Simulated scan of single mutants.
Amino acid sequence: MAVYTEVPFAEAAALLERLNLGTLTELRGIQGGIENTNYFVTSEREGQTVEHVLTVFERLGFEHLPFYLHLMKHLATHGVPVPEPAADARGEILHTVQGKPAAVVDKLRGASELAPGAAHCAAVGALLARMHLVGRDFDRQQPNLRGLPWWNETVPVVLPFLAPEQAALLRAELAYQNHIAEGSAYKALPRGPIHADLFRDNVMFDGEAVSGFFDFYFAGVDTWLFDLAVCLNDWCVRHGGERDGEPVPELQQAFLNAYEGVRPLTAAERTLLPALLRAGALRFWLSRLWDLHLPREAALLKPHDPGHFERVLRARLPLAAPTRPAETAAA
């Protein structure tokens, strides 16, 4: 989360008043992430302090956002712990701030767990499966906007910034993923709304219990297996050090066992999991390359390291290449 749009205190206060969320007392920009402008908003309502998150959407337009917000509403209504969008007197949950689309959602209790153990992974795996099942009767459709068509469009844009070895890997993996997507087994995989970005910093815990999933603004209809692979590539790999990006088998098994305790994988999903793990790594290596080399201005911005997901991808290849990436070529 970064701050691209400076929101005046008075405008935020007026929005909270329209939403019947009380009198604004504090507006604080959130640092971290790279897609949208986010603020913690604190208000006083009927003698109590209330906290929400205000998001101003920088890349997403009014045409895409109803899917994300109504998906969150659907999940919350069916007992999946996610932030519920606040509605105005007319029932609208998509608002406007500084001429841009915006939403205000509940602030989840607890904290993220950036060094998860097996119990954390199991808790997330079980809730992810439950979320997939609950989403089956969600009646809106929108593709994963960072799926294969976006990869095909974006790879040529980032290639000039890469060293030859990196460029060769990126081209080869994109060709492989296009091949996988053309197969009948892939086309038959179970699908539905997915989070598509359920990293460790998008989950809150009270102890070892999950208090909620948040940041659904990459969600879309795609294979549930891709959603699972994205999680395994963040929750169940090493972060930092000489073995950065390597899978941690005991964490991956805990995550998978808990997921399958709620929704068993099909035979085709088991077969294609290695390919989708590579797809998940490719997607985030590519998006981080894009954000690093083609950045937008922001008042608060910490770009993520693309090299981490290059290492994750290399570790997921059948004959893993050395896990340390080549130096990125100068722009």
Rank of each mutant, 00 (worst) to 15 (best):
H308A: 05
R288V: 12
H52R: 14
N20W: 08
N202C: 08
R18F: 13
L128Q: 14
A167G: 14
G135N: 07
F255M: 13
G99R: 02
R140D: 13
E44V: 15
V124P: 04
E250D: 15
V262E: 15
A181N: 07
H78D: 05
F138I: 13
Q142K: 10
R146S: 09
P164K: 04
D227I: 04
A299H: 15
V155I: 11
E17A: 15
A188E: 14
L27P: 07
T154I: 07
A126W: 12
L159Y: 06
E44R: 13
L19C: 09
L277N: 03
L286M: 07
D222T: 08
G212H: 08
L128P: 01
V53P: 08
E327W: 11
E44G: 03
Y186D: 07
L232T: 07
L169K: 00
A299N: 03
L24S: 04
G22A: 03
E26C: 01
E44I: 14
T77N: 04
V97P: 00
V105W: 01
L277T: 05
T25S: 14
A329L: 15
A281I: 06
D305Y: 03
R278H: 12
Y217G: 02
D206Q: 12
V3A: 03
K302W: 09
M204H: 12
F309C: 05
E260F: 12
A175N: 06
Y68W: 11
K73R: 10
V312C: 05
E173S: 02
H308D: 08
T96S: 10
A10H: 08
H120A: 06
A258D: 04
L174M: 09
V41E: 08
R278C: 11
G117C: 06
R171H: 12
E242F: 09
P318G: 02
G147F: 13
V155D: 09
L189S: 00
E84Y: 04
L21A: 10
L294S: 02
A331M: 02
D215S: 02
A12H: 05
H120K: 01
P325S: 07
R270E: 15
S43M: 10
G125F: 13
H293F: 15
V262Y: 06
P274E: 12
A258S: 01
R314H: 09
L174A: 05
M204N: 06
V80D: 05
G22I: 05
I93D: 08
V155S: 03
